[in-house]
Design a protein around this nucleic acid. Structure first.
Lengths: 185, 185
DNA sequence: TTGTTGAGTGTTTGGTCACTCACCTAGCGA
DNA sequence: TCGCTAGGTGAGTGACCAAACACTCAACAA
């Protein structure tokens, strides 16, 4: 199947394959997704994925890095949109921007799968790196106290749990209790 | 291998196989663990696992139920040990008991893996059931407000994140910030 | 024209996994 | 002694997957 389109170089291909990996790994997780799945999503052959990335783990790490890039960008944009410059107002604006970002669930699911796959040392390291970027940026940009930032992250994790288990659509009292005040995940 | 020991009945075997499943699934997660792994851990043949449980998913669900049984029991015991009967003191005692329970990490890891495997509907349902038991019990036993219980669960999730990424042994400031005040996870 | 290199693919391979089935054995009632 | 039932297993089977291999094709330089 020859094509008349200009071929992209490997450097340009890598990020689009990483984006395809985000979507696919978000669905199946690390062990539940095959490299062929990602290749199909990116419309290239499985073999070429192994030329762009040395192995499956590196592919997942690239996806996770892309995920945290988008999270950081959302937090930055959200903070810029805050009308008040107080720590709480900035953190609140960040939380809202994050809630909007994960509306499609891919970035959220990938983070959950990454926690599950953290037995792989390179994945645990990528997870720590991303978390470090989020915590550091949230702290410095908002000027909030340690307790406030800690609470910000804790409720982010709760938000993940609510989305994964579908608690926002569970009418029982205990579920309403957990989801109360959490921005429409 | 003939044995001189008394054979247990299938009903008695099921919970010990479920306990073996907890340990094994905690290490490899749902997709990363084979039924043969669990069979080896339980010292029976893989074929017999399929006689005790209809499939791999049912085996994982049984493990998760066993996990939440232990969590509930720990919370109950912790609450009974509280010296003050105020909501905050009871929740605090429950948190301490939970921190002690997950010292070996198996029950913690299984919950994280369950979140990752919640794409499987039966696993998502088992996760919701367990969460419902925890939230309902914590609410009723402590008499705490919705906000207090919500915060209790949120910080439990943060505790999981800290343990998984090994933040308690990370000396950098952002990690110390996140782990501050969290009971030695 | 010829040689070389990098992009990209089809196919194979070696191995693993979920699940099945025929079979064996121990006990027990008649 | 003869079944009968229930616990338990060895030996597969078909499907799938990560990774490697063996190639084709386009572009370019001498």
């Amino acid at each position: 199947m020859p094509s008349s389109t200009i071929l992209s170089t490997a450097e340009l291909r890598r990020p689009v394959v990483a984006a395809a990996a985000v979507r696919r790994f978000a669905v199946g997780g690390y062990h539940g997704t095959t490299v062929a799945d990602v290749a199909n999503e990116a419309k290239i052959s499985p073999a070429y994925v192994f030329k762009l990335f040395p192995g499956k783990d590196a592919l997942f790490v690239a996806a996770l890095e892309s995920c945290f890039d988008q999270v950081l960008e959302a937090l930055r944009a959200g903070a810029d949109r805050a009308d008040d410059n107080g720590p709480e107002a900035v953190l609140d604006a960040m939380g809202g921007a994050y809630a909007d970002l994960i509306a499609d669930r891919s970035l959220l699911l990938l983070q959950v799968h990454a926690q599950s796959a953290a037995g792989e040392p390179v994945i645990a390291e990528a997870l720590r790196d991303g978390l470090a970027r989020v915590v550091t940026f949230a702290s410095e940009r908002s000027g909030a106290s340690g307790e406030q930032v800690q609470r910000f992250i804790a409720f982010g994790q709760l938000c993940h749990l609510i989305a994964i288990t579908g608690l926002d659509e569970t009418p029982e009292p205990w579920a309403r209790l957990l989801a109360q005040g959490i921005r429409h995940p």
